[in-house]
Amino acid sequence: MLAESLALTAALFIIGVMGVLIHRNAIIIFMCVELMLTAVNLTFVAFSRFYGTAGQVFVVFVMTVSAAEAAVGLAIIISIFRHRQTVNLKDINLLRG
């Protein structure tokens, strides 16, 4: 089942990457990042069957970091929306020269 898990992981990760590239809605882009993190978790779990349970510990760390990232990122989105009234990444170009 290792090869199948790795193929599924790769497919899910690529779907996340393409979602980040295609979409303009900041919230959907954040969800794509979560999908990529979860795909990596599946890799850790699949390898932990052959390399011991340490891989599952790293999954716990990845989950913690992704939860923190979601909280801070959504707070940033709320803050931007308060100033610009939009979450469209095309209109958020404050740093463009």
Partner: peptide, 30 residues
């Protein structure tokens, strides 16, 4: 899939943290 790969606790955490907490925060912001 996590549960089928002998990672039961990770499966529970996946449901609680991702499906339960993170996605609820996303929907709340929407």
């Amino acid at each position: 899939l996590f549960v089928m790969l002998d990672a039961q606790f990770i499966g529970v955490m996946q449901v609680l943290v991702y499906a339960g907490a993170i996605m609820v925060v996303f929907l709340f912001v929407v």
